[in-house]
Amino acid sequence: DVEPGKFYKGVVTRIEKYGASINLNEQVRGLLRPRDMISLRLENLNVGDEIIVQAIDVRPEKREIDFKYIP
């Protein structure tokens, strides 16, 4: 289970102007929005990149997770 405040290694699977889709595994994925990137710009991400993200909002009833990137 993903817990708010914990850090996870994820893989960038899609990049859109509203954010990047991050997969932690086949069943768990979430969104990294541009506003939640401290020192990383969306255009510097590539599909397949592995990054460390922090879960900031977990809504299991909607199967949604928001991530934050902290270098």
Rank of each mutant, 00 (worst) to 15 (best):
R33G: 04
K17Q: 12
L24F: 05
P60Q: 10
V53M: 03
E61A: 11
Y69H: 04
L31S: 04
E3S: 10
D1C: 15
I51R: 00
D66G: 08
N25E: 05
I56E: 02
K6T: 05
F67R: 03
P4K: 14
G19M: 05
R35W: 06
L32N: 01
G10N: 00
S21Q: 15
Y8P: 01
G30K: 01
N25T: 12
I52D: 02
Q27S: 14
V53H: 00
L42G: 04
R41Q: 13
V53E: 00
D49G: 02
Q27T: 14
R14Y: 08
V47K: 02
I38C: 13
K17N: 12
V58C: 09
V53N: 00
V28S: 05
K6A: 07
K9H: 10
N23T: 15
D1M: 14
P34H: 06
V2F: 10
L45P: 00
G5T: 03
P4E: 11
P34A: 11
V28L: 13
M37D: 06
A55R: 03
I22D: 01
Y18P: 02
S39G: 15
F7N: 04
L31K: 05
L32A: 01
L24K: 00
I52G: 00
F67T: 02
G30A: 03
E43M: 08
E43F: 07
V11G: 00
P71E: 08
P71T: 08
I51W: 01
R59P: 03
R35K: 14
E64L: 11
N25L: 07
N25G: 11
D66C: 08
E16N: 14
K17E: 13
G10R: 00
S39C: 15
R14N: 09
G48M: 02
I38R: 07
I70Q: 08
E64T: 09
E16V: 07
F7S: 06
N44H: 14
V58Y: 10
I65G: 03
S39P: 15
V11H: 05
S39K: 12
K9R: 13
D66P: 01
T13I: 09
S21H: 15
V58G: 03
K68H: 05
K62W: 08
D49C: 06
T13Y: 05
I56Y: 10
G48C: 04
K17W: 15
R33L: 06
E43P: 04
N23C: 15
D57E: 14
E64F: 10
K62N: 10
Y18G: 10
L31G: 03
L40P: 03
V47C: 05
K6W: 06
V11P: 00
V53T: 00
P34I: 11
I51T: 00
N25R: 06
Q27C: 12
I15P: 00
E43A: 10
K62E: 10
K6F: 07
L24C: 06
V28N: 06
L42K: 04
L24S: 01
Y8K: 00
M37N: 08
A20S: 02
R41K: 14
L45F: 04
I38G: 15
E43K: 09
A20T: 03
R29Y: 10
K62A: 12
I65P: 03
M37F: 04
L24T: 02
Q27I: 12
L24G: 01
I22M: 01
E61M: 07
N25A: 08
E64A: 06
G48P: 01
L31Q: 06
R35N: 10
Q54S: 05
F67M: 04
M37S: 05
I15A: 00
Y8F: 04
M37A: 06
M37E: 04
A55G: 01
I22P: 01
K62R: 12
I38L: 08
E64D: 06
E3D: 06
I51G: 01
I51Y: 01
V2E: 09
A20L: 08
S39A: 12
Y69A: 03
Y69I: 04
T13C: 09
R33V: 06
E3K: 13
A55Y: 06
L31F: 10
P60T: 09
R14M: 10
N44T: 11
E50R: 11
P60V: 11
I51E: 00
D36C: 09
S39E: 14
E16T: 15
I65Y: 09
Y69K: 02
K9T: 09
L24N: 01
M37I: 07
Y8E: 00
N23G: 08
L42M: 08
V53L: 07
N25K: 05
E43Y: 07
E16K: 08
F7K: 05
P71F: 07
F67W: 07
P34V: 09
D1Q: 13
D1V: 14
T13Q: 05
R59V: 05
I38E: 12
A20Q: 01
L24V: 11
L40Y: 03
L24W: 04
P4G: 06
S39W: 14
F7P: 03
R29W: 13
R35H: 11
K9F: 08
L45N: 00
P4C: 13
P4Q: 10
S21W: 15
N23M: 15
F67P: 02
D66R: 15
L42V: 07
Y8Q: 01
